[in-house]
C-alpha cells in the first residue's frame, strides 16, 4: 500500500508545481533541501543576507554548511577536502582569495587541490580575469560563475565629477597588483575625454617586494602639494587594509576622498563613494545559484556579471570637516551617513 503521506506530498507537489516551479522541484526531490557549502572570508556580511533572501523569496529550500576562513588562506585546503567528502550541491565563496583557494586558476598546471566538478558560485571578486579565475566573463567555460561588485571606473569618475568637478585627480595604489595597474590605465585614458590631469603615487615596497605602509603620509602630502582636488581610493587590496592611515592623511591635506569599495566609506571614512551594495551583490550571486540548482544550468554557461545600478553614499561628517557639501540634488538619490 502506498504510504498516505508520500501520496499527499506528491499531490501537493503537483499543485504547487502549477504555481511555483521552485517548490515543485524541491518537493520532487523528496523534500530534501539543496545543500550549499559556504566559505566566507571574514564572517557573515550583508552579501550573505542578500543571497539567503533571494533564495527564500524564490522558494528554493537550502541547507548551508557554513565555514569561515578567518581572514586567512591557511584553512582552505582543509575545506576543499571537506567539500569532496560531503559532496554538496553547490559551493559558495566570498572574495578573491577564498575563491582562488577553493576553485583555483583556470590555467593552473595542477588542479588536484581544487574543486573542479561541483558548481562554485562566488560573490565579491573584483576582477575574475585579473585573478585568473576564468578567461572570459561572458563564457566562464568551467565549474565557476558569480557576481562582480566593482563599479566601472568611468561611472565612478562621473559621480565624482558631479559632486565636485575633477581638475587634478590623485591616486595611490600598489604597483604589484595587476588589478590596480589596469584601473590606473583606465584613468589615464579617461583623463583625455574628461579633461583632468592625473597625479600617481605607488605604495613603497619592502625588501621582499611586498607593499609597505611606510611613508603613506608623505605620499598623500605630495599628492596634495601637486594640487589634487580629489583622491581616488581604487579597489586595491593593500589600500583596503590602510584606510585608517590614508583617509586621515588626506583629510589633513584637505583632500576629499572617493571610495570604490563600500568599506572605504562605511569604515574607512571616505567622503563619498559609488558602490555596489553588498546585499545586491548577494542577490545577483544567488540568481546564478538558483539557475544552477533549480534549472539545472551549467555554471560554465552562466556569464559572470556586475550590477547595473549602483549606490551613492555620502559621509556628511566628513563633508562638514572639509566644508565641501554635496550638490543639493544629490540628496534626492544618495544615501547620507550622518554618524
Amino acid at each position: 500500500m502506498l504510504p498516505r503521506r508520500t501520496f499527499l506530498g506528491g499531490a501537493a507537489g503537483l499543485l504547487a508545481g502549477a504555481a511555483v516551479p521552485a517548490t515543485a522541484f524541491a518537493q520532487a526531490r523528496g523534500d530534501r533541501p539543496f545543500r550549499i557549502y559556504r566559505v566566507t572570508y571574514r564572517g557573515r556580511t550583508e552579501v550573505e543576507d542578500g543571497f539567503d533572501d533571494y533564495l527564500a523569496s524564490n522558494g528554493v529550500a537550502v541547507e548551508f554548511i557554513e565555514r569561515d576562513a578567518e581572514r586567512s588562506t591557511a584553512r582552505l585546503p582543509e575545506f576543499v577536502e571537506e567539500i569532496r567528502a560531503l559532496a554538496p550541491d553547490l559551493v559558495y565563496t566570498w572574495g578573491t582569495s577564498v575563491t582562488l583557494g577553493v576553485a583555483g586558476r583556470y590555467d593552473a598546471a595542477d588542479r588536484s587541490g581544487y574543486i573542479t566538478d561541483t558548481p562554485v558560485v562566488f560573490a565579491l571578486v573584483a576582477s575574475p580575469l585579473a585573478a585568473g579565475l576564468v578567461a572570459d566573463l561572458a563564457d566562464p567555460g568551467r565549474n565557476l560563475t558569480g557576481a562582480v561588485h566593482v563599479v566601472p571606473p568611468e561611472t565612478q569618475l562621473r559621480a565624482m565629477h558631479s559632486y565636485r568637478p575633477i581638475t587634478r585627480l590623485g591616486v595611490l595604489y600598489t604597483s604589484t597588483e595587476q588589478n590596480s595597474l589596469s584601473i590606473v590605465e583606465d584613468l589615464r585614458r579617461l583623463r583625455q575625454t574628461m579633461g583632468f590631469s592625473l597625479i600617481e603615487r605607488q605604495f613603497r615596497l619592502d625588501g621582499d617586494g611586498r607593499p609597505s605602509p611606510d611613508g603613506i603620509e608623505e605620499l598623500i602630502a605630495e599628492i596634495g602639494a601637486e594640487g589634487a582636488n580629489w583622491l581616488y581610493l581604487l579597489p586595491d587590496t593593500f589600500l583596503g587594509t590602510q584606510y585608517d592611515r590614508v583617509v586621515p592623511a588626506a583629510l589633513a591635506n584637505r583632500l576629499p576622498t572617493f571610495g570604490a569599495a563600500e568599506l572605504a566609506i562605511r569604515q574607512g571614512g571616505a567622503l563619498v563613494g559609488l558602490i555596489s551594495r553588498y546585499y545586491s551583490v548577494g542577490q545577483l550571486a544567488a540568481s546564478k545559484a538558483v539557475r544552477i540548482l533549480r534549472d539545472g544550468a551549467s555554471p560554465a554557461e552562466l556569464p559572470i556579471e556586475t550590477l547595473k545600478r549602483f549606490s551613492l553614499i555620502i559621509n556628511l561628517p566628513v563633508a562638514k570637516q572639509l566644508d565641501l557639501y554635496p550638490p543639493i540634488e544629490m540628496l534626492n538619490y544618495a544615501e547620507v551617513l550622518t554618524g
Binding site: 556628511l316 563633508a319 562638514k320 566644508d323 557639501y325 554635496p326 550638490p327 543639493i328 540634488e329 540628496l331 534626492n332 547620507v336 550622518t338
Partner: peptide, 22 residues
C-alpha cells in the same frame, strides 16, 4: 522638501551647493 532635507542633515543654510542652479 529638498531644502528641508539638506538642513535636517545638518548642511548649513549658506552651504546649499547647487541650489541656485537647481
Amino acid at each position: 522638501a529638498l531644502v528641508g532635507k539638506a538642513l535636517a542633515l545638518g548642511i548649513p543654510l549658506d552651504r546649499l551647493q547647487g541650489l541656485g542652479e537647481h
